[in-house]
């Protein structure tokens, strides 16, 4: 065991302070310390993306980040993307287009897709497949995930146009 560090994190808009060993992985901080269990653990070697969160504006695999590195950071998880009264269009679209089955990859998948659409609000199917390639799904074969993201993009663009 090594010396514990004082850590400050802003998670889904809420500031959290605690002492932790620097080797604590961010995914465990979220899941076990803060009880934010949306992000999951799939591969532990940064291949599957089930643990994806947004950290300081970047999509990050939280299994490959020490909490010490995240000290001072702003983190958004699936829980911060939309809830029962305010579903994000991506959450709606995944439900509508059967973009999930066992649900295990879904939080990381949607969290990544939110960022993808921020960066590219009007992606082609190919751009979605490339931009989502850091998230593995074992159930859906991706076809309906791609469909969900395309649908959400269309929905978000339409809403934006209507607002303008």
């Amino acid at each position: 065991m090594s010396k514990k560090m004082h850590i400050t994190l802003t998670v889904n808009g809420k500031e959290e302070e605690f002492l932790a060993e620097p080797r604590e992985l961010l995914i465990y901080t979220l899941r076990e310390r803060l009880n934010i269990t949306g992000p999951h653990i799939g591969c532990e070697t940064s291949h599957c993306g089930a643990c994806t969160v947004t950290l300081n504006g970047k999509s990050v695999k939280s299994c490959t980040m020490f909490v010490a590195q995240a000290d001072g950071a702003e983190v958004t998880t699936i829980e911060g993307i939309g809830g029962p009264d305010s579903l994000h269009p991506l959450q709606e679209a995944f439900k509508e287009h059967h973009g999930l089955q066992c649900g295990y990859c879904t939080p990381g998948m949607i969290t990544r897709a939110v960022k993808l659409l921020e960066e590219n609000p009007n992606p082609t199917e190919e751009e979605i497949r490339f931009g989502m390639a850091g998230n593995l799904c074992r159930c859906t074969g991706y076809q309906n995930i791609v469909k969900s993201i395309l649908a959400a993009a269309a929905e978000m663009n339409a809403a934006k146009e209507a607002a303008e």
């Binding site: 829980e79 809830g83 439900k95």
Partner: peptide
């Protein structure tokens, strides 16, 4: 029929074994 399971999964509210504390 749309799946009734999806509300919890899309909101990160699934309950998998490693979520049990």
């Amino acid at each position: 029929r749309k799946r009734v399971e999806d509300a919890r999964f899309t909101q990160g509210k699934g309950n998998y074994v490693d979520d049990i504390k």
